[in-house]
């Protein structure tokens, strides 16, 4: 197991370096940050009934969405792509390869999530008087909501990545519900402006609670009057995110195991043949 840990950490570091050197992927992550900042810069007015700028609510919401997207869009895409290319099979054929793969991916996802979140908040604070946590309590909330938020979406994303068919279809299948949740979870405008049934549906999913938790960390306490319940409902945030984390782990472990077990040379060839026929993969 020590070999697998060492190899996994080494692998995570190398993948992170590749990511940092890949203009395409870096621009993907940076675009999210830039879009959030640009929209925040154009939004005027205050959260209804408070003195909190609307831009702050929006930035807190985007921060939650960044975590959500890394876990449920980027991670499944990476898993599906690497399954299709044979990375998963090669690691399966290597002693300790699958544990090392999981260690590396965890490292990568956490680094990207923390990196983009820090970048968003830092740039917003420096350039536009953006929101930052108030006092140690606020920082603590930021820390646990981020951690629990990642725990809620990363295993779930891994489970999704284990079952999705191929990278091309995967993106289409994930993006639609993700965008839907972005606009119904109160991330980009106050959730109270949405019809109650929509609010109820959105409150089943983790994004609403991640956004609400981050607002409680980043916005002044007075802003809670704009929340649906009139309070931050932090116990509920913890409960819902924990429930998703448990569900995610329960799904991810057997599904990843199944995905790894199903990999073999002939399945890989068959997928490449199909991909080549559809003209999506060179050679």
């Amino acid at each position: 197991m020590t070999n697998a840990w060492r190899a996994g950490l080494q692998r995570g570091r190398i993948e992170l370096r590749h990511l940092l050197r890949s203009p395409k992927e870096m621009s993907g992550h940076l675009t999210n940050v830039v879009v959030a900042l640009v929209i925040a810069a154009y939004v005027t007015g205050h959260v209804p009934g408070t003195h909190v700028p609307m831009a702050h609510l929006l930035l807190a919401g985007f921060a939650a969405y960044l975590l959500f997207q890394i876990g449920l869009v980027n991670l499944p895409q990476i898993l599906v792509t690497e399954r299709e290319e044979g990375t998963l099979l090669r690691l399966r054929a290597t002693p300790g390869g699958i544990p090392a793969y999981l260690v590396a991916k965890t490292l990568l996802v956490v680094a990207v999530a923390v990196g983009t979140l820090a970048l968003l908040l830092a740039v917003a604070a420096l350039l536009a008087d953006g929101p930052l946590p108030h006092g140690p309590g606020g920082w603590l909330t930021l820390l646990w909501v981020t951690t629990l938020g990642l725990l809620a979406v990363v295993p779930l994303g891994a489970a999704i990545g284990a079952v999705l068919p191929n990278p091309r279809e995967a993106l289409a299948l994930i993006m639609l519900p993700t965008m839907g949740l972005l606009f119904t979870s109160g991330t980009v405008f106050p959730i109270t402006s949405l019809p109650v049934p929509v609010q109820q549906v959105a409150s089943v999913f983790p994004l609403k609670w991640m956004a609400q938790g981050l607002r409680s960390a980043l916005l002044p306490d007075t802003a809670r009057t704009a929340e649906a319940a009139g309070s931050w409902e932090l116990p509920m945030v913890a409960l819902v995110l924990s429930a998703w984390a448990v569900l995610g782990f329960l799904l991810a472990v057997p599904l990843l195991r199944r995905a790894a077990r199903r990999e073999s040379g002939s399945r890989l060839s068959a997928r490449h043949r199909r991909a080549a026929q559809s003209g999506a993969l060179p050679g």
């Binding site: 044979g86 090669r90 060839s269 490449h272």
Partner: peptide, 9 residues
């Protein structure tokens, strides 16, 4: 194996 295209980067 025949079909490996992994670790391109």
């Amino acid at each position: 194996l025949q079909s490996w295209r992994d670790h391109r980067r």
